[in-house]
Design a protein around this nucleic acid. Structure first.
Lengths: 101, 101
DNA sequence: TCGATAATTCGATATTTTTCGAATTTTGGC
DNA sequence: GCCAAAATTCGAAAAATATCGAATTATCGA
């Protein structure tokens, strides 16, 4: 696996973040990660096919919004809360209902 | 002219705003309107053809980010600062260098 | 190593956006 | 009314995104 493409905090581009968040499914994913914390892809797929879900997670990952790690056979996705807050202070607050640190 | 399509403050959708701001030209337009205040389309077109500029202004208008009024033969575009701030507090601050009320 | 589960990649198609020239609309001045 | 300036609309073509099934990869456990 070398699909990483995870930008460093300073490399996160506002245009990319906005593009990632302009899709309703991806926006909802970010909100749920913010509220419920780390989640598997499965837990957040609606009734979409896996390949579609995977695509959206990739967009979020490459925009710098989420980070993915292996947990056994599943992959857990987490919002990069601190990195985003550091790079664009206040942005997450516009997106997310409320925080749960 | 009936191209208005200007959403009321409460109707502004976050996805639309994000989509509008995900384009570099449009993001720059918003920043310049924020810093320099009301501007004509001409003043902000780079070397793009008019029709292209007009398209981008329309996206911004329909997303609820700008408002356009006639000033003689030209049309002046202004950031809907208060409406956006009311609907999504803090969002503009993430986008714009600094404010000049 | 085999099988099962989770997710990614591939490839092809569909949908959405963007681009830009030409034609049109709007407004003001003569 | 006629002309010029500013911007929008139209229409077609190009580019970027999204969708989804099938094949592939990765990881764990037996």
């Amino acid at each position: 696996m070398r699909h990483a493409r995870l930008p460093a905090s300073e490399e996160i581009a506002l245009e990319d973040v906005f593009h990632a968040l302009s899709d309703p499914f991806r926006l909802e994913v970010v909100r749920r990660l913010a509220v419920e914390g780390e989640q598997s892809c499965q837990a957040l797929e609606g009734d979409r096919p896996k390949s579609s879900v995977s695509h959206h997670f990739r967009v979020l990952r490459e925009a710098g919004l989420i980070r993915t790690r292996n947990e056994g056979v599943t992959r857990m996705n987490a919002l990069r809360r601190d990195d985003i807050e550091q790079r664009f202070p206040g942005l997450l607050a516009c997106v997310v209902p409320k925080s749960n640190d």
